[in-house]
Design a protein around this nucleic acid. Structure first.
Lengths: 192, 192
DNA sequence: TAGTGATTTCAGAAATTTCTGAAATCACAG
DNA sequence: CTGTGATTTCAGAAATTTCTGAAATCACTA
């Protein structure tokens, strides 16, 4: 591996981390390299920088493309593919969230649904279904929230984040305002 | 493996999933089994149900304990350890989040901080630092948000989730209320 | 069409992770 | 202390994943 020391630390760390996630060491390293590179990099150069085989690079890039984490670029009069990551880190975060959901959450949800459809044949199965249903409910709540906030523009999302738990304060305030409003002019949709 | 079919599907799925996360197949299976079992289970029984060696069970349980994901129970006049998962799925979610943060996010943050302290020795390094700083900022924002909302009681957290993106509506409303309030009686803390 | 260079594929090699059985350790009872 | 059963440890076996080099494919040019 032949890189500026500062870049090398980063790349090595991402390699380590890669194995803790589902992706492997090389894939992590390549991603890190692309992320910090000032310009798109070709496969040959990746192989050289990281000291790995050309074919390994090819397969790992394929993997990264499956994750939608890299962008292909071309130079005029050059047939080679060059690779980068998106500029906007928020954009990267969104992709990551989406792909992980697709791979890790959705399959689980569908297995749970499948099992919950079946008729339990014993007390043990009845209890198991009960537990799975709790898990299913929780995951659905989380994914609904996710589907909802992912629509927000980045700026709003950032505001929401920075607000953190303080939104609950707002919620209380809102409750007061609403009940106040109601006492003055009753909600017309609420005719009883 | 000798389990009710419905439980077996769940256990097998969690095994698969386990390998996509950092934990391995057996660890995933054991966790799934404990999660749906109506009563605490001893190591021997786990080994039998899953058809794996006793020693494998021992090591995997150790791993689950390191993750704080299982609870040890004892029966009177029985020296064996029995294992369960917490009842409350929200509690499980919190543990999972905390442990993953500890293993995946914190080390990355500290590597980033470390690198950002150093003086870049070239343009390439300067650019790399710039990128890492963007990443660092984003992760910090996310973890601050997390540290904040994790304090909330479960019920409030659930409310917040179910509200989803609608909180931004509230935010706009708040802005109106606040500016309205200010125009009537100026903020006394703001003496200039 | 033949030639060139980039890229991909894939069978097997290398490395890593997971799993097992045998032995060691531990905790307690008699 | 000795015996008993539960549990853990750990060296090596087995399984899995990752990586490589050689060959195949592809896209384009002359």
């Amino acid at each position: 591996m032949n890189l500026p020391p500062l870049v090398q630390s980063f790349v090595l760390h991402f390699g380590e981390m890669g194995s803790r996630w589902g992706i492997n060491r090389t894939v992590g390293q390549i991603y890190a390299l692309l992320f910090v590179s000032p310009a798109p990099v070709c496969a040959e150069e990746i192989a050289d920088s990281l000291g790995i085989s050309r074919s390994n690079v090819s397969m790992s890039l394929r993997e990264l493309q499956a994750w939608n984490l890299v962008i292909l670029k071309h130079k005029p009069d050059d047939r080679r593919d060059f690779f980068t990551t998106p500029d906007d880190v928020w954009h990267i975060l969104r992709t990551l969230a989406e792909e992980r959901k697709k791979r890790e959450v959705d399959p689980t949800l569908s297995v749970l649904r499948e099992i919950l459809m079946q008729r339990p044949a014993s007390d043990a199965e009845r209890h198991a279904q009960q537990r799975m249903s709790e898990m299913h409910t929780l995951i659905e709540q989380l994914t609904h929230w996710y589907e909802d906030v992912k629509q927000l523009e980045t700026e709003r999302l950032a505001t929401l984040l920075s607000l953190g738990a303080k939104v609950t304060k707002l919620l209380e305030a809102k409750d007061r305002v609403v009940s106040l409003g109601r006492s003055r002019r009753p909600n017309p949709a609420n005719k009883s």
